[in-house]
Nucleic acid binder design. Structure first.
Lengths: 111, 111
DNA sequence: ATATTATATTGCAATATTACGATGAATATA
DNA sequence: TATATTCATCGTAATATTGCAATATAATAT
Protein backbone atom coordinates (compact mmCIF):
# COMPACT_ATOMS: atom_id res chain seq x y z
CA UNK A 1 0.00 0.00 0.00
CA UNK A 2 2.41 2.74 1.12
CA UNK A 3 -0.38 4.67 2.81
CA UNK A 4 -0.44 5.11 6.58
CA UNK A 5 -3.64 4.39 8.51
CA UNK A 6 -3.54 7.62 10.51
CA UNK A 7 -7.11 7.19 11.76
CA UNK A 8 -5.98 4.36 14.02
CA UNK A 9 -3.73 6.62 16.06
CA UNK A 10 -3.95 9.66 18.31
CA UNK A 11 -3.35 13.18 17.07
CA UNK A 12 -0.18 13.33 19.13
CA UNK A 13 1.16 10.09 17.71
CA UNK A 14 0.48 11.28 14.17
CA UNK A 15 2.04 14.66 14.89
CA UNK A 16 5.20 13.14 16.35
CA UNK A 17 5.48 10.77 13.38
CA UNK A 18 5.01 13.63 10.93
CA UNK A 19 7.76 15.70 12.49
CA UNK A 20 10.05 12.67 12.76
CA UNK A 21 9.53 12.03 9.05
CA UNK A 22 10.86 15.49 8.26
CA UNK A 23 13.97 14.77 10.34
CA UNK A 24 14.30 11.37 8.67
CA UNK A 25 16.65 12.54 5.93
CA UNK A 26 20.29 13.45 6.45
CA UNK A 27 20.05 16.39 4.04
CA UNK A 28 17.32 17.96 6.17
CA UNK A 29 19.32 17.34 9.34
CA UNK A 30 22.31 18.94 7.62
CA UNK A 31 20.22 21.96 6.63
CA UNK A 32 19.09 22.44 10.24
CA UNK A 33 22.66 22.11 11.52
CA UNK A 34 23.80 24.61 8.91
CA UNK A 35 21.11 27.02 10.14
CA UNK A 36 22.14 26.53 13.77
CA UNK A 37 25.66 27.59 12.87
CA UNK A 38 24.92 30.28 10.31
CA UNK A 39 21.65 31.55 11.81
CA UNK A 40 20.31 32.29 8.32
CA UNK A 41 20.95 31.06 4.82
CA UNK A 42 19.64 31.06 1.29
CA UNK A 43 19.08 28.12 -1.01
CA UNK A 44 22.29 28.85 -2.89
CA UNK A 45 24.40 28.56 0.29
CA UNK A 46 23.10 25.05 0.81
CA UNK A 47 23.63 24.02 -2.80
CA UNK A 48 27.26 24.99 -2.31
CA UNK A 49 27.58 23.34 1.10
CA UNK A 50 25.72 20.04 0.57
CA UNK A 51 26.29 18.22 -2.70
CA UNK A 52 22.74 18.15 -3.97
CA UNK A 53 21.09 19.86 -6.91
CA UNK A 54 19.22 23.14 -6.45
CA UNK A 55 15.85 21.55 -7.14
CA UNK A 56 16.52 18.88 -4.53
CA UNK A 57 17.51 21.39 -1.84
CA UNK A 58 14.44 23.44 -2.62
CA UNK A 59 12.27 20.37 -2.11
CA UNK A 60 13.87 19.61 1.27
CA UNK A 61 13.45 23.23 2.34
CA UNK A 62 9.76 23.05 1.51
CA UNK A 63 9.29 19.99 3.70
CA UNK A 64 11.05 21.67 6.59
CA UNK A 65 8.90 24.75 6.08
CA UNK A 66 5.70 22.73 5.84
CA UNK A 67 6.20 21.30 9.31
CA UNK A 68 7.03 24.81 10.56
CA UNK A 69 10.53 24.15 11.85
CA UNK A 70 11.97 26.79 9.52
CA UNK A 71 10.59 29.89 7.88
CA UNK A 72 11.50 31.69 4.70
CA UNK A 73 11.34 35.38 3.96
CA UNK A 74 11.61 36.89 0.52
CA UNK A 75 14.58 39.21 0.47
CA UNK A 76 14.98 40.77 -2.90
CA UNK A 77 15.91 38.11 -5.40
CA UNK A 78 16.60 35.45 -2.82
CA UNK A 79 14.75 33.81 0.05
CA UNK A 80 16.22 33.98 3.53
CA UNK A 81 15.65 30.90 5.66
CA UNK A 82 15.97 30.52 9.42
CA UNK A 83 14.80 28.33 12.27
CA UNK A 84 11.48 29.24 13.89
CA UNK A 85 12.37 29.37 17.60
CA UNK A 86 8.80 28.86 18.85
CA UNK A 87 8.16 25.82 16.68
CA UNK A 88 11.62 24.50 17.45
CA UNK A 89 10.86 24.42 21.15
CA UNK A 90 7.45 22.91 20.49
CA UNK A 91 9.05 20.06 18.57
CA UNK A 92 11.78 19.69 21.16
CA UNK A 93 9.09 19.23 23.79
CA UNK A 94 7.27 16.73 21.62
CA UNK A 95 10.33 14.49 21.50
CA UNK A 96 11.58 15.01 25.03
CA UNK A 97 8.05 14.29 26.19
CA UNK A 98 8.27 10.83 24.70
CA UNK A 99 11.81 10.15 25.84
CA UNK A 100 11.33 11.33 29.42
CA UNK A 101 8.08 9.45 29.81
CA UNK A 102 10.13 6.27 29.74
CA UNK A 103 13.22 7.50 31.56
CA UNK A 104 11.10 8.58 34.50
CA UNK A 105 9.23 5.30 34.73
CA UNK A 106 12.09 2.84 34.64
CA UNK A 107 10.93 -0.05 36.73
CA UNK A 108 11.33 -3.77 36.12
CA UNK A 109 13.65 -4.14 33.24
CA UNK A 110 12.85 -6.70 30.62
CA UNK A 111 11.85 -10.19 29.55
CA UNK B 1 15.25 7.96 -7.46
CA UNK B 2 14.09 7.14 -3.92
CA UNK B 3 17.62 6.41 -2.76
CA UNK B 4 19.34 8.69 -0.25
CA UNK B 5 22.87 9.93 -0.97
CA UNK B 6 24.22 9.03 2.45
CA UNK B 7 27.84 9.55 1.36
CA UNK B 8 27.27 13.31 1.26
CA UNK B 9 26.57 13.52 4.98
CA UNK B 10 28.29 12.84 8.28
CA UNK B 11 27.85 9.61 10.19
CA UNK B 12 25.97 11.49 12.89
CA UNK B 13 23.58 13.06 10.40
CA UNK B 14 22.87 9.69 8.81
CA UNK B 15 22.42 8.07 12.21
CA UNK B 16 19.98 10.72 13.40
CA UNK B 17 18.02 10.44 10.16
CA UNK B 18 17.91 6.66 10.42
CA UNK B 19 16.52 6.75 13.94
CA UNK B 20 14.06 9.50 13.02
CA UNK B 21 12.82 7.35 10.17
CA UNK B 22 11.94 4.59 12.62
CA UNK B 23 9.95 7.09 14.70
CA UNK B 24 8.30 8.42 11.54
CA UNK B 25 5.27 6.16 11.70
CA UNK B 26 2.43 6.53 14.22
CA UNK B 27 2.17 2.76 14.67
CA UNK B 28 5.77 2.60 15.84
CA UNK B 29 5.25 5.56 18.15
CA UNK B 30 2.17 3.80 19.51
CA UNK B 31 4.15 0.60 20.07
CA UNK B 32 6.78 2.51 22.06
CA UNK B 33 4.11 4.25 24.12
CA UNK B 34 2.45 0.92 24.76
CA UNK B 35 5.78 -0.45 25.99
CA UNK B 36 6.35 2.55 28.24
CA UNK B 37 3.03 1.84 29.95
CA UNK B 38 3.08 -1.96 29.94
CA UNK B 39 6.85 -2.45 30.27
CA UNK B 40 6.67 -5.58 28.13
CA UNK B 41 4.37 -6.98 25.49
CA UNK B 42 4.01 -9.63 22.83
CA UNK B 43 2.99 -9.20 19.22
CA UNK B 44 -0.55 -10.39 19.99
CA UNK B 45 -1.08 -7.62 22.58
CA UNK B 46 -0.33 -5.00 19.94
CA UNK B 47 -2.54 -6.63 17.34
CA UNK B 48 -5.37 -6.33 19.85
CA UNK B 49 -4.48 -2.77 20.86
CA UNK B 50 -3.66 -1.15 17.52
CA UNK B 51 -5.91 -1.97 14.57
CA UNK B 52 -3.31 -3.45 12.26
CA UNK B 53 -2.79 -6.98 10.98
CA UNK B 54 -0.37 -9.32 12.68
CA UNK B 55 2.06 -9.29 9.77
CA UNK B 56 2.09 -5.50 9.76
CA UNK B 57 2.82 -5.25 13.49
CA UNK B 58 5.59 -7.81 13.10
CA UNK B 59 7.13 -5.69 10.37
CA UNK B 60 7.05 -2.54 12.55
CA UNK B 61 8.55 -4.45 15.47
CA UNK B 62 11.41 -5.57 13.27
CA UNK B 63 12.20 -1.98 12.29
CA UNK B 64 12.19 -0.89 15.91
CA UNK B 65 14.43 -3.84 16.76
CA UNK B 66 16.80 -3.14 13.86
CA UNK B 67 17.59 0.33 15.19
CA UNK B 68 18.02 -1.18 18.66
CA UNK B 69 15.36 0.80 20.50
CA UNK B 70 13.56 -2.39 21.53
CA UNK B 71 14.64 -5.97 22.05
CA UNK B 72 12.76 -9.23 21.74
CA UNK B 73 13.27 -12.40 23.73
CA UNK B 74 11.78 -15.76 22.79
CA UNK B 75 9.57 -16.92 25.63
CA UNK B 76 8.04 -20.26 24.78
CA UNK B 77 5.59 -19.81 21.96
CA UNK B 78 5.65 -16.03 22.06
CA UNK B 79 8.26 -13.28 21.83
CA UNK B 80 8.52 -10.78 24.67
CA UNK B 81 9.38 -7.25 23.60
CA UNK B 82 10.66 -4.38 25.71
CA UNK B 83 12.53 -1.10 25.41
CA UNK B 84 16.34 -1.27 25.56
CA UNK B 85 17.16 1.35 28.24
CA UNK B 86 20.75 1.90 27.10
CA UNK B 87 19.83 2.47 23.48
CA UNK B 88 16.85 4.56 24.53
CA UNK B 89 19.12 6.99 26.35
CA UNK B 90 21.56 7.00 23.46
CA UNK B 91 18.80 8.01 21.07
CA UNK B 92 17.43 10.54 23.55
CA UNK B 93 20.88 12.16 23.63
CA UNK B 94 21.08 12.12 19.84
CA UNK B 95 17.90 14.19 19.58
CA UNK B 96 18.41 16.46 22.58
CA UNK B 97 21.92 17.10 21.25
CA UNK B 98 20.43 18.59 18.11
CA UNK B 99 17.67 20.50 19.85
CA UNK B 100 19.85 21.99 22.57
CA UNK B 101 22.56 23.00 20.13
CA UNK B 102 20.13 25.59 18.81
CA UNK B 103 18.39 26.51 22.06
CA UNK B 104 21.73 27.36 23.65
CA UNK B 105 22.88 29.51 20.76
CA UNK B 106 19.85 31.70 20.27
CA UNK B 107 21.26 34.96 19.05
CA UNK B 108 19.99 37.29 16.32
CA UNK B 109 16.62 36.00 15.37
CA UNK B 110 15.75 35.90 11.72
CA UNK B 111 15.59 37.46 8.31
C1' DA C 1 13.00 46.43 -22.33
C1' DT C 2 16.33 42.81 -21.58
C1' DA C 3 19.47 40.22 -19.15
C1' DT C 4 20.77 38.32 -14.78
C1' DT C 5 20.13 36.10 -10.43
C1' DA C 6 17.80 33.10 -7.13
C1' DT C 7 14.09 29.93 -6.28
C1' DA C 8 10.10 27.24 -7.05
C1' DT C 9 7.60 23.93 -9.72
C1' DT C 10 6.79 20.17 -12.95
C1' DG C 11 7.56 15.76 -14.76
C1' DC C 12 9.82 11.65 -14.58
C1' DA C 13 12.65 7.43 -13.30
C1' DA C 14 14.40 4.63 -9.60
C1' DT C 15 13.68 3.05 -5.27
C1' DA C 16 11.40 2.67 -0.59
C1' DT C 17 7.43 2.13 2.44
C1' DT C 18 3.04 0.38 4.05
C1' DA C 19 -0.26 -3.13 4.56
C1' DC C 20 -1.96 -7.71 4.41
C1' DG C 21 -3.00 -12.62 3.04
C1' DA C 22 -0.75 -16.86 2.81
C1' DT C 23 2.61 -19.78 4.33
C1' DG C 24 6.27 -21.61 7.28
C1' DA C 25 8.69 -22.65 11.69
C1' DA C 26 8.69 -23.40 16.50
C1' DT C 27 6.78 -24.47 20.86
C1' DA C 28 3.09 -25.95 23.71
C1' DT C 29 -1.09 -28.81 24.83
C1' DA C 30 -4.65 -32.53 24.29
C1' DT D 1 1.04 -37.87 17.42
C1' DA D 2 -2.10 -34.41 16.19
C1' DT D 3 -3.59 -29.75 16.96
C1' DA D 4 -3.53 -25.20 18.42
C1' DT D 5 -0.83 -20.90 19.38
C1' DT D 6 2.43 -17.35 18.31
C1' DC D 7 5.25 -15.11 15.48
C1' DA D 8 8.31 -14.24 11.27
C1' DT D 9 8.82 -14.19 6.39
C1' DC D 10 7.43 -14.04 1.50
C1' DG D 11 5.01 -12.13 -2.17
C1' DT D 12 2.41 -8.51 -3.90
C1' DA D 13 -0.35 -4.20 -4.69
C1' DA D 14 -0.78 0.61 -3.76
C1' DT D 15 1.44 4.57 -2.61
C1' DA D 16 5.40 7.64 -1.12
C1' DT D 17 10.09 9.39 -1.40
C1' DT D 18 14.35 10.93 -3.55
C1' DG D 19 16.86 13.26 -7.00
C1' DC D 20 17.44 15.92 -11.02
C1' DA D 21 16.85 18.27 -15.65
C1' DA D 22 13.99 21.42 -17.65
C1' DT D 23 11.16 25.05 -17.19
C1' DA D 24 8.59 28.78 -14.86
C1' DT D 25 8.43 32.77 -11.81
C1' DA D 26 9.89 36.92 -9.69
C1' DA D 27 12.94 40.60 -8.41
C1' DT D 28 16.86 43.30 -9.55
C1' DA D 29 20.41 45.33 -12.61
C1' DT D 30 21.95 47.17 -17.09
Amino acid sequence: MGITKTDLFTTEQNELAKVAKVLAHPARVAILEYLIQANTCINGDLVGSLGLAQATISQHLRELKEVGIIQGTIEGVSVCYCIDPVRWEEIQNLFSGLFQRYSNSEGGDCC
